[in-house]
């Protein structure tokens, strides 16, 4: 569907990453009592948490795709699946047009290194017992990317400079740095293996407001210089507005709206997107009281029937409570899952 856009421009390159009906569930192991009941032939119900439910999404070369949703909606789980840290429960993930489950040898190594993750917590994402220089040199040594120690050292220094850190920081430990500096070290570690794709999981959420803009600018800089593709995760639409080309809105494990950033901010379709947008303090509604989306976030253990958003939706009808809306294309690039748009 997205590919229709490029149809006139000759053969379209496959998306860098393509998700088809991708799902991830979490369960716990049965406890002893449950296992005994199971042995006795009794049916045991262990709750299944659907963190990501049937996601179809492609990311194209060179774009920044923003992924926005409330806490616990499955953004990190989706991002982790793209990097291979977490494996999907169902569905398919293609890298360069090939299912990642079929990759092996060199191709698997390429996928692993090409798709790198920037983590949310700069305090947990660096090994506290390694010096910064070793953190950055380890991937080079493990994958024999460099031929000699002098070359390794040169690459480490380059990486430090690229993210705006002093080369003398090589010999220090992570705990000697501030959050923003650590986040830069984490970015340098990802960049040193020359990835094509960065999954940035709320990379600035844990930073001081004064540092956030600097790190955002670093991401924009790197994108220009290295032609990187990003999946940029955030719970805050105003952050994504600065950086994303397209935005996907996630609610309770599903993508409910997908549109180019400009269109999404100008003409949001899904009621959830609209409420999210109303929360952004702007010049127009600066005086309005800041409020979160009304209603409680439902538990992903027991998602509501029909449209998962219906308990909080001002437009909910009986149909919404009974029947889950299917994704519909409003335009070639704007897709939404909501019954309001069914008979347009």
């Amino acid at each position: 569907m997205m590919n229709a856009l490029h149809a006139d421009a000759g053969p379209t390159p496959p998306p860098v990453l393509e998700m088809r009906a991708l799902e991830r569930e979490f369960t716990r192991k049965p406890v002893l009592a449950e296992r005994l009941l199971g042995l006795l032939g009794r049916q045991i119900d262990i709750p299944v948490l659907k963190a990501v439910r049937s996601v179809d999404l492609s990311v194209h070369e060179g774009e920044v795709l923003g992924l926005v949703g409330e806490s616990g909606c499955g953004k990190s789980t989706l991002g982790r699946m793209l990097t291979g840290i977490t494996s999907p429960s169902r569905g398919e993930l293609d890298y360069n047009g090939k299912p990642v489950t079929e990759l092996s040898g060199q191709a698997l190594r390429d996928f692993t290194l090409d798709v790198q993750m920037i983590f949310q917590d700069p305090y947990a994402s660096l090994n506290p017992r390694q010096k910064v220089g070793d953190i950055l040199a380890e991937p080079l040594r493990v994958h024999r990317i460099t031929r000699s120690e002098t070359e390794t050292r040169k690459r480490v220094d380059e990486a430090l400079r690229e993210v705006g850190l002093d080369v003398s920081y090589r010999d220090r430990y992570p705990h000697q740095f501030s959050g923003g500096q650590r986040q830069r070290i984490g970015i340098a570690r990802a960049l040193i293996v020359e990835p094509r794709f960065l999954v940035c999981d709320e990379p600035i959420a844990a930073l001081d407001v004064s540092i956030q803009a600097q790190v955002i600018n670093l991401f924009l800089d790197l994108r220009r210089r290295r032609n990187l593709t990003y999946l940029f995760i955030s719970h805050d639409l105003s952050v994504v507005r600065h950086i994303a080309d397209r935005v996907a809105i996630m609610y309770l494990g599903q993508i409910v709206e997908l549109a180019p950033a400009a269109r999404l901010f100008a003409e949001p379709a899904h009621p959830y997107t609209r409420t999210l947008l109303e929360q952004i303090p702007s010049v127009r509604n600066r005086k309005r009281k800041f409020h979160a989306v009304k209603g409680e976030i439902p538990s992903p253990l027991k998602p509501p029937s029909g449209c998962a958003f219906h308990p909080r939706c001002a437009f909910a009808t009986d149909r919404c409570r009974a029947e889950a809306p299917l994704p519909r294309d409003l335009t070639e690039t704007h897709r939404v899952s909501c019954h309001l748009f069914d008979n347009n």
Binding site: T83, I85, R109, Q116, M117, F119, S125, P139, R189, V193
Partner: peptide, 10 residues
Amino acid sequence: EYVEAAFNLG
């Protein structure tokens, strides 16, 4: 996360 990063770096 640093352990996830280590696996992510292959």
